[in-house]
């Protein structure tokens, strides 16, 4: 199958996220919790419209892809997460961008540079 031309591709948004927990959580635990939250809030139809996919995840920060129409809904679903892998957690959206590079440069790398701002509860 050939890749679609860029004009026909679905528009997307990239959410730079940060997990605030006591200890690090694994990618699998995070994914399970995200899909459980979005499934219970928006149902199967809503979650398929969101088209969520976790792209990068490392050291409590990651980039999440979703459909551009559902960015706010996805944000609400992420806010309903209370615990990941049995420990209390907050999923904090650092920012939303139209490209992966934008999300990483603007929100993830900037936060890494100003390490003093970063909190580890």
């Amino acid at each position: 199958m050939k890749t679609l031309p860029s004009s026909l591709r679905e528009r997307k948004r990239y959410l730079a996220i940060e997990i605030i927990t006591e200890y690090d959580v694994s990618r699998e635990e995070l994914l399970r919790e995200i899909f459980a939250a979005i499934g219970s809030l928006l149902g199967d139809i809503g979650s398929s419209e969101c088209g969520l996919r976790l792209l990068d995840y490392d050291k409590q920060k990651g980039v999440l892809r979703c459909s551009h129409m559902m960015a706010e809904k996805s944000r609400a679903a992420l806010a309903t997460i209370t615990s990941i892998g049995g420990q209390r957690a907050i999923v904090h959206v650092l920012g939303i961008s139209g490209t992966v590079r934008g999300a990483t440069q603007k929100y993830i790398q900037c936060a890494a540079i100003s390490e003093t701002v970063h909190i580890n509860i």
Binding site: I20, L41, E72, K73, R75, A76, L78, A79, T80, T82, S83, R88, A89, I90, H92, V93, I121
Partner: peptide, 18 residues
């Protein structure tokens, strides 16, 4: 009710949207 119940302003906006 605890520190882990806190959410950022934009998250509260998204939840209020619901």
């Amino acid at each position: 009710r605890s520190i882990y119940d806190m959410r950022g302003p934009r998250e509260l906006v998204a939840l209020a949207n619901l």
